[in-house]
Amino acid sequence: MSNYTATGRLHEMYDTQQVSEKFSKREFVIEIKEGQYPEHIKFQLVQDKTALIDGFRIGDEITVNFNLRGRGFVKNNDTLYFTNLEAWKIEGNKTGQRAGGAAPQKAAPIKSDDDNDLPF
């Protein structure tokens, strides 16, 4: 299949799963804000690629390069189909490696006149 890319904020990361003796996978979700509602897209890393997400934190902006994979599986005479978005490259600023060498700082909350206890 052709290579695809998606850019968004890292929303969720899961631990690596050892599915069988010879197969391991790790899943993660990015949030893409397009249109009125955000989309949450789940990707899969397999085998030696499971560590690609290491060093990223929830909220980091990342670009995922992935392949579209599909397989059929016969169970009880019914064919079930699975589609996976198999990531093979992740780009972005890893935690501790941000531009300028410093980790981002939280902005102070903006206060309005309604936030004080003054009687006038």
Rank of each mutant, 00 (worst) to 15 (best):
M1R: 03
N3P: 02
T5H: 04
L10E: 05
Q17Y: 02
K22S: 12
K25V: 11
R26M: 00
I32W: 07
K33E: 03
Y37G: 00
P38L: 10
P38M: 00
I41M: 12
L45F: 14
V46Y: 00
D48L: 06
D48K: 12
T50C: 12
I53W: 01
D54M: 07
D54C: 08
D54G: 11
G55E: 11
G55D: 05
I58A: 06
I62Y: 06
V64F: 04
F66S: 08
R71N: 10
R71S: 14
R71A: 14
G72L: 03
F73I: 04
F73T: 12
N77G: 07
T79D: 03
L80Y: 11
T83G: 12
N84L: 08
E86P: 06
W88Y: 14
W88F: 15
K89C: 01
I90Y: 09
E91K: 05
G92I: 06
K94D: 06
G96N: 14
G96T: 04
A99I: 08
G100I: 03
G100N: 14
G101D: 01
A102C: 04
A102M: 10
A103Q: 08
P104A: 02
I110Q: 06
I110F: 09
K111H: 12
D113M: 08
D114V: 13
D117H: 14
D117F: 15
P119Y: 03
F120E: 05
